[in-house]
Simulated assay, not measured.
Amino acid sequence: MTTFGTGNASQTLRMKQLNTLIWSMSIIRAANSTHSSVIWPDVPIHATECALFYCINKYHNVVQNGDLIQEITPVESLRSPLSWQPENDIGVAISDPTRASSIEFDDYYSYYTRSDLHLVSSETGHAFNISQNAVNGISSYFQQNFATDTTNFPLNDSDSDIDDAGQLNGAYFTLGSELSIPGVLQVFFNSENLSSTFAGLATSMSNTLRDFADDIESDGIGKMQTGKTQVVAVLYTIQWPWITIHGVVIAAGWVFLVTTIRINQRYGQGREAFKSNALAVLSRGSIVYHTIGKTQSMSQMERIARNTEVCLFPKTPTGSQLEPGEFGPS
């Protein structure tokens, strides 16, 4: 893979209209081949040119159900003709017009003071300034990390005209071992989609600029946005009258049970056994035959039994219970 990176739009192939160019890279990459018989130059190659440039975006933020949703819309921006103007005799010193208008960092020409880079939104007319220090610093960073010394060479053996020469300032190749000059190009070579890689790089740069731009206003107060966070909570309302009804029923049941036990323990024989069915009477068999013997159906038998009083375990005058097999009066 060979590359040529530049911050001067006039040296690009299809980015010459970008007058806010930060960095452009022309990349020629050989496609990975699984066939060992493929020999250079019979290898498919792909050419790509990607660019980073200053622009204006419109950000619309909405919080929905606690999630921050951000919509980013590019806005057509124009570089003001009055921006990036020399504030001294740099106009006389620079003979190349493309160099005079370019925002690319130069070891010599960037020494001269310029006005801010001035971008204007064609949609709203809002203006945004980027200082010369910021422009030079970002451009210099890309030169140092995305390119090495430029190599010029003729396009063919008979061509020696420097204007028609090729230029390279980066390469990645393998000759027994991998070699990447500069090292960042290994990421580009391994990238499956160079356009997505540059888009991710541009997004990270935009996020960084937004994080640290305009932290302090002119009055020294930071631009802090405050808001409210809502948390959904489930609340229960206790209806005490309904709970009281259940408590009264439970308490009454306990009173009824305790009273029944105490009465039967105290009076013993001749007291009615509280019952919910006829089993207490029917368990006496022949003793109660004269009471239920004339019935002809189970329902009649149960009806008569419910109205009959029995004492299952009557006490003797001495207080002891009857022996098994003995029955008291019914």
Rank of each mutant, 00 (worst) to 15 (best):
D89W: 08
N193H: 07
P324W: 05
L82Y: 15
I27D: 05
P86K: 08
N19F: 07
Q321F: 15
G66M: 15
L201C: 07
W254T: 06
C50A: 13
G328R: 04
R271P: 00
Y236T: 11
D96Q: 10
P154F: 00
S101K: 15
P317S: 13
M1Q: 04
D116T: 05
V187E: 10
H60L: 05
A233W: 04
T295K: 09
M301I: 09
K58W: 01
L175T: 08
A9K: 03
Q132L: 06
I287G: 03
N8K: 09
V248Q: 09
S180L: 10
S299N: 08
A280R: 02
S286M: 05
F188R: 02
L235C: 00
N32V: 14
A147R: 11
T12A: 01
P317I: 08
G170H: 05
P44T: 07
E49P: 04
Y141V: 00
S297G: 08
N136F: 14
R210L: 10
P44S: 10
L194K: 01
S191D: 12
S140T: 00
T260L: 01
Q70L: 03
S95D: 03
Q239R: 05
T113V: 13
F327L: 09
P314M: 13
L21C: 08
W40K: 04
N8Y: 08
M301V: 08
K228P: 00
F198Q: 03
Y172C: 14
T237A: 01
N88C: 15
Y141D: 00
G170A: 11
G137D: 11
E309F: 10
E309L: 14
P81C: 12
R29H: 02
A100M: 15
Q225T: 12
L279Q: 04
I221D: 08
Y111C: 03
A252H: 01
V231E: 12
T6W: 00
V135I: 14
S121C: 02
E49G: 04
R114E: 09
N307Q: 10
D159R: 05
F198M: 15
L168H: 02
T113A: 11
Q64D: 10
I56E: 01
R14W: 10
I263H: 03
G285K: 12
N156S: 15
L322S: 07
E326M: 07
N57D: 09
S24Y: 01
H60C: 02
V135P: 05
V135K: 02
L312S: 07
T124D: 01
T237V: 03
G166Y: 13
